[in-house]
Write a protein that binds this DNA or RNA. Structure first.
Lengths: 249, 249
DNA sequence: TATAGTTGTCTATATCAATAGACAAATTTA
DNA sequence: TAAATTTGTCTATTGATATAGACAACTATA
């Protein structure tokens, strides 16, 4: 029902071009493992027939994916899959960036892109249990695994309790390690709200995506084991490279 | 960072038309509550300027949303928001359709669209702990709340253990009630894998969506309290109407 | 009752997206 | 080597997308 390169799923006049839709389908098929690495895609004429479009339209889709580094086309031979399956990012009671991707990647780390002190917006204040306008520290981060961006997040912390967490983050490259410096040995994911949308210009730049890509968005609150909110965050994941695995909390 | 009608987020040559991107932005802004019901949208010229596009392009976006029933345009007065915020669909250890939407809707139910007996595919077999090709019953369902489709799911059950569950489902309109007839008083969500993609033709028809819409996809396994798999399912949710709230398992 | 502000309609033009067909170039297979 | 298969390139045409400008129609307000 999902994922196979099925015929019945191309929409015209949708505001999404046919080549983009076909590119998305190929990406999805690769992501769920329909094509192993180095496998050959069906020839262009076959794909065109399957989707009921012109061969040139299929070529547009393929060339976009070649551009993205997902496929490699060889004249006379065929078109081949380069990239691997989607990463499976676990979300649970103890959601941690690095440990979650162990086994799937050889290397991963978090980069601190920017930090600032600002008054809490309505939703941040609610999430952290602070008064609206209270000072909070915002950390803008990007998660990378094997050299590819896999997440882009903003995290907010009570400025009074966590003064200097930006420096700690820059030094350690780890939220968990930074919180440890403030006496937080353990923390739990209290709530996660999930949505999806098209990537905007910022996402495209931050996550190295091509226009038209989809991002998964999580808005979450982390708390101490006794239920005290310590972090409010909004994270964006490239849907073509990451799926979220919801594990037992 | 997210959600406001921001200027910096329109991509050209993306395979997604500008009017579709703007329509998505407006939908998102409504969904996260930037516009309350009956609120007026900024005038077309203002939106055009904000996004750096022609007024006619904004009009295309608006007319698509009027078509979808999200907005109402009145000549001389303005354009107004009709629809409410997204439903928040809870996913946790005891994910149940009806109870999860209580409080947010006045009415909700599940419609059985089709059922069949078939050999288990690789992934269904893995999910249910059966041999590949073992007989399974597939139930195709649609969840509706206040008359609007909010989910479209396929569920698979071991045909030997749950023979007749299709009839029970048709009669009761509830997975929980149907399972109860087979002695399952309680069941837990064991795993959920989440992804997002553009809606395909089937989604458009089933979920009453417009072309270009995004769907959230969950693939889940439900087990008895002692860990025995009883249901494998794949559900699709319209991202413009539903967000997923991951609660404690 | 003017006037300003807003949506609705029309014409025209340029660019992107998609189709159609033909043939070249490279590789594999018979 | 010849034939079949597959990707690459080119020309031409059509329809959708986007821009630009002008003005009509309607509403609210000064």
């Amino acid at each position: 029902m999902v994922g196979r390169l099925t015929a019945d799923s191309i929409e015209r006049r949708s505001g999404v071009s046919l080549w983009r839709q076909i590119a998305d389908k190929i990406l999805h098929a690769i992501a769920i493992g329909d094509f192993t690495e180095n496998a050959a895609l069906p020839p262009e004429v076959a794909l065109a027939e399957r989707y009921g479009v012109n061969r040139h339209t299929v070529r547009s889709a393929i060339s976009a994916l070649v551009q993205e580094g997902v496929l490699r086309a060889e004249q006379g031979r065929g078109t081949f899959v380069l990239s691997r399956k989607r990463l499976s990012y676990p979300i649970g009671a103890r959601t941690r960036f690095s440990t979650g991707l162990q086994g799937q990647t050889t290397e991963r780390h978090i980069v601190l892109l920017a930090s600032s002190v600002e008054p809490a917006s309505q939703r941040v204040a609610e999430g952290l249990g602070l008064a609206r306008g209270a000072e909070v520290i915002r950390l803008e981060t990007r998660g990378e695994a094997d050299g590819r961006p896999v997440s882009r997040a903003a995290g907010w912390f009570d400025a009074r309790r966590f003064a200097g967490i930006d420096a700690a983050m820059a030094e350690t490259g780890s939220i968990t390690a930074s919180l440890a410096r403030f006496g937080i040995d353990d923390y739990l994911r209290q709530s996660t709200v999930l949505s999806a949308r098209h990537a905007d210009a910022a996402d495209l730049a931050d996550l190295d995506l091509q226009p038209g890509a989809i991002v998964l968005v999580t808005v979450a609150v982390n708390v101490t084991p006794d239920g005290q909110p310590i972090q409010f965050s909004e994270s964006r994941f490239p849907a073509e490279r990451v799926e979220l695995k919801l594990s037992a909390l």
